[in-house]
Computed example of a mutant assay.
Amino acid sequence: MHNLPSQPGVRVNLAELIEMRHRVREVQLFSTPAQRSPLIGLHHSKLRGRGVDFDQVRVYQAGDDVRTIDWRVTARTQEPHTKLFHEERERPIYLLVEQSPRLFFGSGLMFKSVLAAQAASLIGWAALGHNDRIGGLVFGDQEQHEIKPRRSKQSLLQLLSRLARANQALSSDSQASRDSFGLALRRAREVLRPGSLAVIICDERTLGDSSEQQLNLLARHTDLLLLPICDPLDHALPAAGLLRFAERGAQLELDTHDASLRQAYRALGEARQARWQRLAQKLGVPLLALSTQREMIEQLRDHLNAQRPGKRL
């Protein structure tokens, strides 16, 4: 099923998620020897020993390891100099990606479920290119599909395959599990060791009291990166007259010409956004909210540019 032709903006297949690897260079998610990412604070990972990538030579300082003295530069300058190395890093990066019926909707460039899948794929390829161990959990409906973090392309492909299958299986007739997000977070708490990075990609509307508590607990021993997904219609109703909604026998009518109704609806959307912002500030973690209204890479660039050195995450 996951290799079927996609419906652009509505569904994705495995081939498209694999192709996302070519777009990693368009946004600097993780640091390289030549450039530091604004998300470097998320990457104080457990080291595999002293780094092997040479960085630079500087004047010897008290406390430096004498084994790193550069004797050639020392002899030439007649002043002790020491070599510096880039840290060789390895950490598990765990992608929690929602693919539930609440995401099977979009009024912008794509469905929210497609945007979530694309974001997960991009981050996965970036992590693999940074030599990290990558794994994760695809959750939605009544099912969870987990891939244990490994430093291999095969592990990422298994995760993307599960993600594509879940995306292809979505339909408007599906019924979402209200606690699927909380269950996914509890599973992450069970399997992630201290120092891991959990990347949370979910519907903006998914956050509730229970899931917020789980995120607070998860943040005690892991780093978090929050990517709530939204659509313009999550935040504002158009003045389009009488709108009728139906779901499994239930019906609802809204008169969108009613200004007070539109204002109340907008206030609910703003409250959801504010809740994510408060949570991110409380936990001290980056918040990269994504909307179906704009192209994903552009949004990520904007977020990261806003977090350049001199600006707080």
Results as ranks from 00 to 15, higher is better:
3 N>W: 12
4 L>H: 07
10 V>P: 12
13 N>D: 14
22 H>W: 07
22 H>S: 13
29 L>C: 10
31 S>R: 05
37 S>L: 04
41 G>I: 05
41 G>L: 08
42 L>R: 02
42 L>E: 05
44 H>A: 14
45 S>K: 03
46 K>V: 14
47 L>A: 13
52 V>M: 06
53 D>W: 01
56 Q>F: 00
60 Y>T: 07
73 V>G: 09
82 T>Q: 05
82 T>S: 10
85 F>T: 10
91 R>K: 13
95 L>D: 10
99 Q>P: 13
100 S>D: 15
106 G>W: 11
108 G>E: 05
110 M>W: 02
112 K>D: 04
118 Q>P: 01
119 A>F: 06
121 S>C: 09
126 A>P: 08
135 G>P: 00
136 G>C: 04
145 H>E: 03
149 P>G: 03
153 K>W: 08
154 Q>D: 12
158 Q>V: 03
158 Q>S: 13
162 R>N: 08
173 D>V: 08
177 S>M: 04
184 A>M: 02
186 R>I: 04
187 R>P: 03
189 R>S: 15
195 G>E: 08
209 D>I: 14
210 S>N: 14
212 E>K: 13
213 Q>K: 14
219 A>I: 07
221 H>M: 12
222 T>R: 06
227 L>A: 02
235 H>F: 15
240 A>K: 11
241 G>M: 11
244 R>L: 14
247 E>R: 15
250 A>N: 12
251 Q>K: 09
252 L>I: 03
252 L>E: 05
253 E>K: 11
255 D>A: 08
256 T>I: 10
258 D>K: 05
259 A>W: 04
261 L>I: 09
261 L>A: 08
265 Y>S: 05
278 R>L: 11
285 V>A: 12
296 M>Y: 00
300 L>E: 08
311 K>V: 12
312 R>D: 13
